[in-house]
């Protein structure tokens, strides 16, 4: 069910069923066009999305199941884009979660039409993007890396990192500092001193 005209490859294909969905006017960063498809949105050759408003789900609890069944096994990634538009979410969301989990769909929730639209855009734009962004390869500058490392210790904040850095001169000196030297840093109280010292000097693995 994938029309492969090259002009449409970079566009989101929208099912005719979605005509009149106010969500469509929030898809602005990517081109989209109506097409005769079985899913609601076709985001790539193997990626599709179904749109579900929780309010609609409350009226038609079986709708989602029938829509998923229609998809058969034709897609690698099947997204259920759930618009959270009711106040009392727990029960309907539980049902939607259960249905999507048992029928191999990935559930994404948006709280506004803008947010839902943005998910569609993003999935399309990132279709072929590598995962670097979420693999934590930060090539940040020295200061942000130092920040990131030292704030692994609870209650250590950015100001403390500056104080520690400027007092001891380098991370290895910070790690080797004595309790007394740590205590001499303004803004670092008794408990933080202990926390820092323990983090540096207690063994990674305690002997059993």
């Amino acid at each position: 069910a994938t029309p492969s005209s090259s002009a449409n490859r970079n566009a989101i294909l929208v099912s005719n069923r979605q005509k009149g969905n106010p969500l469509l006017k929030h898809i602005r960063n990517v081109r989209w066009t109506f097409a005769d498809i079985v899913c609601d949105y076709l985001l790539g050759p193997n990626t599709c999305a179904l749109y579900l408003s929780l309010r609609y789900h409350l009226l038609h609890p079986d709708y989602l199941y029938f829509r998923i069944r229609e998809l058969q096994k034709n897609f690698r990634l099947r997204i259920i884009l759930c618009h959270v538009d009711v106040e009392d979410v727990i029960k309907p969301l539980l049902e939607v979660t259960r249905t999507s989990l048992l029928h191999d769909c990935s559930l994404l929730c948006g709280w506004s039409l803008e947010e839902c639209g943005r998910y569609l855009e993003t999935v399309k734009v990132y279709e072929n993007k590598p995962a670097d962004l979420i693999q934590g390869q930060m090539d940040g500058d020295y200061l942000s890396r130092l920040n990131h490392a030292l704030t692994a210790i609870r209650h250590v904040n950015k100001t403390d990192v500056v104080t520690l850095g400027s007092t001891f001169g380098s991370l290895s000196h910070v790690m080797d500092a004595s309790m007394e030297d740590l205590a001499r840093c303004p803004g670092i109280g008794e408990r933080k001193v202990k926390r820092l010292y323990d983090a540096f000097h207690e063994p990674f693995k305690r002997e059993v």
């Binding site: 099947r78 997204i79 979660t97 559930l107 993003t122 990132y126 962004l133 979420i134």
Partner: peptide, 24 residues
């Protein structure tokens, strides 16, 4: 579409792990 937005990160995660199920 901003690379640092949580929307982008979740979308990437879903794209790279189509078998991952998300519970909200």
């Amino acid at each position: 579409v901003a690379p640092n937005s949580i929307i982008s990160k979740l979308s990437l995660l879903v794209l790279h792990f189509p078998r991952l199920r998300i519970i909200w």
